[in-house]
Amino acid sequence: MEAGPEKVRSLERDTKSRLDSHPGSTVRTAGLFTDDLILEILSRLPARSVHRFKCVSVPWRDLIADPANRNKLPQTLAGFLYTIISNNACRHHFAGVSGDGAAPFDPSLPYLQPNKDESITQANACNGLLLYSGYKKNNVDPWTEGDFHFMVCNPATGRWVELPPQPQPQEPANRYSRTAGVTIYSSRTGAWSHRDSVIPEKVDLFFSSKCVFVAGTMYLEGINNESVLVGVDMQGKVWKTIYMPCGRRFGTIGASQGCLHYAIASVDDNNKVLVSEIELWCLKDRDSKQLVLKHTANIDKLMSMTGQKHRVVSIHPDCDTIFLVSCGDGTLVSYDMRHQKVGRILNLEKENAQRFLPYVPLLSESLSVADADE
Rank of each mutant, 00 (worst) to 15 (best):
D373L: 09
C327T: 10
T179E: 04
R44A: 07
Y335S: 00
E374S: 12
G258E: 05
Y335M: 01
R249C: 13
S256L: 01
N69S: 02
I184M: 04
S57L: 04
V50K: 00
K309F: 11
L229W: 10
A125I: 06
R13M: 12
Y243M: 09
V198S: 11
L291Q: 00
R175V: 09
S119K: 09
M303T: 11
F206C: 08
A215S: 15
F213M: 13
E6L: 13
G247V: 06
I84T: 15
S276V: 02
E162Y: 09
G128E: 00
K137D: 07
A30H: 03
T217F: 07
L293H: 09
V212C: 08
L32V: 03
K137F: 10
K301I: 09
Q170A: 10
G146R: 01
F80C: 06
S177E: 11
C126P: 09
E374L: 14
E6K: 11
I242A: 02
N225P: 02
G328C: 10
M234T: 10
A265L: 02
V8M: 12
G328T: 13
L37I: 10
S98A: 14
T189I: 09
A353L: 11
N174Y: 04
P169L: 06
A78C: 08
I322G: 02
R338N: 13
D233H: 07
T189Q: 04
K237I: 06
I299W: 05
A265K: 06
Y111A: 10
V342C: 11
A30Y: 06
K272E: 14
D141E: 14
E145A: 13
Q257V: 08
Y135L: 11
D36E: 15
V161H: 02
S208F: 12
A255C: 06
T15P: 00
L37G: 00
K116C: 12
A78D: 00
Y262Q: 01
T189Y: 08
D287I: 01
A156S: 14
A103P: 01
P317M: 03
L346E: 05
V50Y: 01
